[in-house]
Simulated assay, not measured.
Amino acid sequence: MIRSYNHKSFVLEVSVETSFRLVSKLAPEPARYLAVVTISRSGRPVTAFSPLYVAHDRIANFSSAEDALMSAHSAAQTFVDDWMKAAH
């Protein structure tokens, strides 16, 4: 799953990767998700912080693709906002 968002003249591209690991046939581990963010401007990644791998605070990854997507989108916006503030 890949989504692109525009934010303050940057393009935030968020992709979600799935991690399946089977422990046994009787007790399969649920799918977990990792978000990967690439922030670009004028068609080129901003090397200051791209790509980013976004994970949930308490665990190594997210329990749903939607959580991964929305959390990564919010984190990318925060990175851009903070970076622009620091540049001024």
Results as ranks from 00 to 15, higher is better:
25 K>P: 00
59 I>N: 08
41 R>W: 05
29 E>H: 13
39 I>C: 10
78 T>E: 13
36 V>M: 09
37 V>A: 09
19 S>R: 14
12 L>Y: 02
26 L>C: 07
1 M>Q: 06
15 S>M: 01
55 A>T: 07
81 D>A: 11
39 I>D: 07
5 Y>M: 06
47 T>P: 14
82 D>Y: 05
55 A>W: 01
25 K>A: 14
52 L>P: 04
73 H>G: 02
38 T>E: 14
1 M>T: 06
23 V>C: 10
71 S>K: 01
9 S>Y: 02
24 S>N: 11
30 P>M: 12
70 M>Y: 06
15 S>G: 10
38 T>Y: 07
53 Y>N: 09
29 E>K: 15
86 A>G: 10
42 S>G: 15
72 A>T: 01
32 R>T: 15
54 V>Q: 06
5 Y>D: 03
34 L>N: 15
10 F>T: 06
58 R>D: 14
8 K>A: 11
81 D>R: 10
54 V>L: 08
33 Y>F: 15
82 D>S: 12
85 K>P: 03
55 A>E: 08
61 N>V: 00
56 H>W: 10
49 F>Y: 14
13 E>A: 09
23 V>F: 14
44 R>K: 13
16 V>K: 00
87 A>D: 07
81 D>C: 10
31 A>I: 13
33 Y>K: 04
61 N>T: 11
75 A>K: 11
43 G>I: 02
65 A>N: 00
76 A>H: 00
30 P>H: 05
57 D>R: 09
46 V>N: 05
36 V>N: 13
43 G>Q: 03
56 H>R: 12
38 T>V: 15
80 V>N: 03
10 F>E: 04
52 L>D: 04
